[in-house]
Write a protein that binds this DNA or RNA. Structure first.
Length: 206
DNA sequence: CGGCTTTGACCAGCGC
DNA sequence: GCGCTGGTCAAAGCCG
């Protein structure tokens, strides 16, 4: 379980054929929960569509201090996600815009999708309604406060739920690969764009 | 030796 | 007010 430790600087998930590719048979984007910055409610909500490799089940903008706070994600997913977000130091009700939250539910044999960023694990916890442990990661890049949670779906361990909190304040070299992928992958094109939109929420173009 | 993971403890929010 | 739960911290150990 060391996949967050990307041995290659070349961000293999979308570019290295030796790595798990999201569009291979054993890896499906089943749900995509992404923040579309619509002011904190579900204006961007699109109901789950099980016929598609990617389903957008929820979106949210949240406010608060570093690490996230305030509202939890609302979702139409069959399984109640545990995205409630609490943070020390946010009790005074600050409403400072903090960032975005993006969540994927994917069918994958691996626990941690390598998304091109370098992550450092800082916690692991068993959560309610899930026999599997949830892993907590921070972006290793200096000054970047983006966090990521990774857990296996409690109802179907074949699925991995990955949640990103915040926006990277540094460049992601993988950005190029995502764009290349879209350009070279036409069928189900809207799905690629959905994924791209989500990823680009947390990887601002530099 | 440096960077990382592991893991138990601690803290804060929420529901009852 | 109390207990439960999720999120984070930090020390210790591991690994390249």
């Amino acid at each position: 379980m060391n996949i967050s430790q990307n041995p290659s600087p070349n961000y293999p998930i979308f570019s290295d054929e030796n790595f798990i590719n999201p569009f291979m048979d054993n890896f499906d984007f089943t749900d995509l929960i992404f923040d579309v910055n619509e002011g904190g409610n579900n204006n961007g909500f699109i109901p789950e569509e099980t016929s598609s490799p990617i389903s957008i089940v929820s979106s949210e903008t949240f406010t608060g201090e570093s690490g996230g706070s305030g509202s939890g994600i609302t979702t139409s997913s069959k399984k109640e996600p545990t995205f409630g977000c609490k943070s020390r130091g946010s009790k005074d009700g600050e409403t400072k815009e903090m960032g975005h939250r993006v969540a994927f539910r994917t069918r994958s044999k691996i626990d941690v999708m390598d998304d091109g960023y370098k992550w450092r694990k800082y916690g692991k916890k068993s959560v309610k309604n899930n026999t599997n442990k949830r892993n907590y990661y921070k972006c290793s890049n200096e000054g970047c406060t983006v966090k990521k949670r990774v857990e296996r779906d409690g109802e179907d361990a074949a699925y991995v739920i990955t949640t990103y909190d915040g926006v990277h304040n540094h460049e992601s070299p993988s950005h190029v690969y995502y764009n290349d992928m879209v350009l070279s992958y036409d069928h189900d094109n809207w799905n690629q764009h959905s994924l791209l939109q989500a990823i680009q929420q947390i990887s601002p173009p530099y």
